[in-house]
Write a protein that binds this DNA or RNA. Structure first.
Length: 596
RNA sequence: GGCCCCAUAGUUCAAGGGAUAGAACGGAAGUUUCCUAAACUUCAGAUUCAGGUUCGAGUCCUGGUGGGGCUACCA
């Protein structure tokens, strides 16, 4: 049982005993004692004063005396202002340390037959442009959340919906058809997703020119946007696509296949994957039929022009289009179909959508419409709304070319990592292949940690002119600590030092005890990250752990410690710290090198 | 116009209503005959404003200012 809960239980008993009242457990605040004070757990007495009718100090004194009597582990206490700090003594921590050290799955649970089914959707790319920094954040959050949930014993299915159809896809197809001269990835030497992206941008440029001309001829901006020949052609193409026109489908398949080949490379580089991929081209029809059925049942509204709408005015929202007048479907339509088929396929207990906060409204509406259509499971879908990655100038826009491209960024990180490594010269005796892989681990570690250490819900700023750091609160800092620990361990091995056990009568330094305390928090942090769907909690936890370890490493000798039992303890402490680092980095989807 | 989100050192981020608001980068100054100096130590530096609730507010409430997003027959 968690020790803070034991304290709460006993403190309730104490209050009942001392003051004759049964108070609500929520009035009891038990927290970890802050490092600058002596003690292990702290009870805040202020909320209890109206029951004790005494001063904070007296109340704390009463409670302290009671708890030292009634909890075996509590050996001392001190009172500062209204804070009662309980001291458990190092023996408690040594025994907790031994338990954690002996548990090879420390902190990590595995799913079993009774585990809940959780579906996590992330990535959701459009097949009209390459992935950029914003997508990287999405992929990393999704991948990490999936890992964290699995570590709390959930059965997790990682899924991806590929937005492979729609007007935006037709735009790049049309531009390629008009201006592409049959250019292919092979002929141009361009990665497939970049080639297609180039034509998406081209479409937008030409489209803008047409709009400009039409407005000069006297049309309003709005009219011009609707009437420009290019957009009419794109709409025509979408209609043809939905009518299964052979040539259109062929072109679509060809260009999408280029994009997929490109995406595969980027996903592989990033180290993310999926258990099940859905394609919008497969689910939109299902969405359409769900909508048409609901229309028959009078759950939706038909306008004179033939378009179909959901009326959400009772929910305080407006009307939402589900099928256009020409019968083609929109984003919402396909998402209805996708959700439906996913529930059919997996009967999820929970479905988490990792999608940007610009779509808050969309997901609010999606949930309401699914409920309107009579799907009970709709209450189990959850939008993990993450913030945008912004440049100092503002939002990234693919169409305007102001994006930080995923592949390029990964390349840059690699070359920076290589420069630093060569300067330090620590990898010189390795083969080129080993060096390459170590550098890649470090480069990705820097990038991933940079993105994951920030609370997912918040927008964040990335300045491409200042490259991502490799020192300080960074992935490489954590990886470095891990590599150092591995080095100590291998030196111990070389010297035939075994550290499978150590004797109990040691006197530990405060820093060593502190390190044990921090390690012991690992399982709680995983649980908290899972509950909050927030990998940043875990990231900041590792940083704290690593900082404490580095101080310990600096201040104390491990292998040169003369007391053999203490040396063995310190080796175990290092070893366990190393595995907590490795396991928590793994939950973030970040690897650790054995050397660096 | 309506709705939603955000505001903390020069910069990028932390802080479950609780103790003296933590870090990192950048700036200044140090630590290496010693297990990896991608480390460690020290210094300077911040809660947008005005009210309110509370024993206690960066955190909750109201309002102002500033920024972002959504409100598309784009996805």
């Amino acid at each position: 049982m968690r020790f803070d809960l034991i304290i709460k239980e006993k403190a309730l008993e104490a209050i009942n005993n001392l003051y004759g009242v049964k108070i609500d457990v929520n009035l009891l605040q038990v927290q970890n004692t802050r490092k600058e004070f002596n003690g292990d757990y702290t009870i805040v007495t202020f909320p209890l004063l109206k029951y004790s009718k005494k001063t904070p100090e007296q109340t704390a004194e009463d409670l302290g005396r009671f708890l030292i009597e009634h909890i075996e582990e509590v050996i001392d206490f001190n009172i500062i202002k209204g804070f009662l700090n309980l001291d458990l003594g190092q023996n408690y921590w040594i025994s907790e340390f031994k338990k954690a050290f002996a548990d090879i799955h420390f902190g990590i649970k595995s799913p079993d037959a009774s585990s809940k089914n959780v579906m996590v959707e992330y990535s959701s790319p459009n097949t009209n442009k390459p992935l950029h920094l914003g997508h990287i954040r999405n992929n990393l959050i999704g991948f990490s959340i999936a890992k964290i949930l699995a570590a709390t014993g959930k059965k997790v299915v990682k899924t991806n919906i590929v937005n492979d159809r729609g007007i935006h896809i037709c735009k790049s197809m049309l531009a390629w058809q008009k201006w592409g001269n049959n250019e292919t990835p092979e002929s141009s030497g361009l990665k497939g997703d970049f080639l297609v992206g180039k034509y998406y941008v081209k479409f937008d440029q030409e489209y803008k020119k047409e709009i400009e001309q039409l407005t000069k001829q006297g049309q309003s901006q709005e009219e011009a946007e609707k009437n420009a020949p290019l957009i009419l052609e794109a709409r025509e193409m979408l209609k043809k696509w939905e009518d299964n026109d052979k040539k259109t489908i062929e072109l679509w398949e060809k260009m999408n296949s280029w994009v997929y080949a490109g995406f595969d490379i980027t996903y592989e580089k990033l180290g993310v994957d999926f258990d099940k991929i859905y394609y919008e081209s497969d689910t939109y029809k299902l969405g359409k039929s769900l909508v048409l059925n609901a229309l028959k049942e009078n759950k939706l509204e038909l306008k004179e022009d033939g378009s179909v709408w959901a009326n959400l005015e009772n929910e305080g929202l407006d009307k939402k289009l589900l099928l256009r007048a020409d019968g083609t479907s929109v984003y919402m339509t396909q998402d209805l179909g996708t959700a439906y088929i996913r529930y059919k396929d997996f009967k999820f207990d929970e479905h988490i959508y990792v999608v940007g906060n610009e779509q808050d409204y969309h997901f609010k509406v999606l949930k309401i419409i699914l409920t309107k259509l009579g799907f009970n499971w709709a209450k189990h879908i959850y939008h993990l709304s993450y913030g945008m990655v912004e440049l100092p100038e503002g939002k990234m826009k693919s169409r305007e070319g102001t994006v930080v491209d995923a592949d390029e960024l990964i390349e840059e990180m690699n070359s920076t990592a290589r420069n630093i490594s060569e300067e330090l010269g620590k990898l010189d005796d390795l083969t080129e292949e080993q060096i390459k892989s170590t550098i890649n681990t470090i480069a990705l570690g820097a990038l991933k940690y940079f993105l994951l250490k920030v609370d997912p819900k918040k927008n964040m700023t990335f300045n491409p002119r200042e490259s991502i750091d490799f020192n300080g609160n960074t992935g490489p800092f954590i990886q470095y600590t891990y590599a150092r620990i591995q080095s100590v361990k291998s030196k111990a091995e070389e010297n035939n030092i075994s550290f499978d056990k150590f004797s109990d009568d040691l006197v530990l330094d405060k820093k060593e005890v502190q390190l044990i305390k921090t390690i012991k928090q690992f399982p709680l942090i995983i649980a908290e990250s899972a509950k909050e769907l927030n990998p940043a909690l875990l990231a900041n936890y590792i940083y704290e752990l690593v900082k404490e370890y580095n101080q310990f490493y600096h201040d104390f000798s491990i292998l040169k410690e003369e007391n053999a039992e203490l040396m063995k303890f310190r080796l175990q402490l290092s070893d366990l710290t190393g595995s907590v680092i490795k396991n928590s980095m793994d939950l973030l989807g970040i690897g650790v090198p054995e050397r660096m």
